[in-house]
Simulated assay, not measured.
Amino acid sequence: MKPTVLICLPFAGAGASFFRKWRRSAPAGLTILAVQLPGREERFAEPAHTDVGSAAAALCPALVPQLDGAGRVVLFGHSLGAELAYELTWRLVERGVAVDRLVVSGAPGPRDRGFERVGHLDDDGFIDGLRRVTGYVHGALDHPGMREIVLPVLRADNRMHESYVSEHDGPLPVPITSVRGRRDELVSAAEARQWSAETDAGFRYAEVDGGHMYLTDSPGSVLATVVGHDA
């Protein structure tokens, strides 16, 4: 495998530590670059983003120097992270970074936004709604003290997701792979294949064992799917 930098964008409520653990499963030649968004972990004191485009624009300047001399550059994002990775890919390309592939996971295409919205609900309703629409809720929400800390970030992430619609007129000049868990009850195969319309550089579709949050169970198999081929 060519030396590869894999830039990982978090799903709603997650921090960079989720992907840093993948380093133990990474094959030789693969560097995991886990992006930390403001409002979580070591960036807890910073205001969380509420807009996908502005989040990607803010992340880009710090990432570009870290990619100097990289072999392959691949971006990966799951659910909300897929939207962030897509927008970040556009901005890296505009800055002259040679991105080899964008891998979107557990996400419908960026234009058909017909999904249940839960951001308007009170806290209890919002948490129950997140379980329905994401299949995952941060464990800290089970602890009253931590709940007050985590909820604002989850609401900000949910606002990013619910308000996001791609405004790009043309196709992305980067190959896209869309990955979906075979038992995903939240994103259908047809929705996952919508990403084929977002690129003119080649599209691949892959299914892996598991449901919507398949990536929490077997990092090794996920990494093999993500970087198991050249662009």
Rank of each mutant, 00 (worst) to 15 (best):
38 P>R: 04
38 P>Y: 15
208 V>W: 11
135 G>W: 13
34 A>L: 04
101 R>Q: 13
85 A>T: 04
145 G>H: 06
13 G>L: 08
6 L>R: 07
166 S>N: 00
110 P>C: 10
5 V>H: 10
33 L>H: 08
107 A>F: 05
151 L>G: 07
220 G>D: 12
127 I>H: 05
230 D>T: 06
53 G>I: 11
30 L>K: 03
131 R>A: 15
122 D>Y: 01
29 G>N: 10
107 A>C: 15
54 S>D: 12
200 D>S: 10
115 F>G: 04
186 L>V: 14
209 D>L: 15
93 V>K: 01
218 S>Y: 05
58 A>I: 09
96 G>S: 14
231 A>Q: 07
93 V>M: 03
127 I>G: 03
152 P>H: 11
153 V>H: 02
231 A>T: 12
61 P>V: 03
41 E>T: 01
151 L>D: 02
171 P>W: 01
102 L>H: 06
4 T>F: 15
102 L>D: 00
22 W>K: 01
133 V>Q: 02
125 G>N: 09
50 T>N: 03
122 D>E: 13
181 G>E: 06
172 L>D: 10
159 R>N: 03
157 D>S: 00
106 G>C: 14
182 R>V: 13
2 K>V: 15
28 A>K: 05
199 T>P: 04
41 E>P: 01
53 G>T: 10
213 M>W: 05
17 S>K: 12
22 W>E: 04
147 R>L: 11
103 V>I: 15
212 H>D: 07
1 M>Q: 11
124 D>K: 06
156 A>F: 07
183 R>T: 14
11 F>M: 12
65 P>E: 03
184 D>N: 00
16 A>D: 01
104 V>I: 05
21 K>M: 15
137 V>A: 07
220 G>V: 10
164 Y>P: 03
74 V>G: 07
71 G>H: 13
154 L>R: 03
116 E>L: 14
81 G>A: 05
39 G>D: 10
21 K>I: 04
26 A>Q: 02
35 V>M: 08
194 Q>A: 08
144 P>G: 00
85 A>I: 14
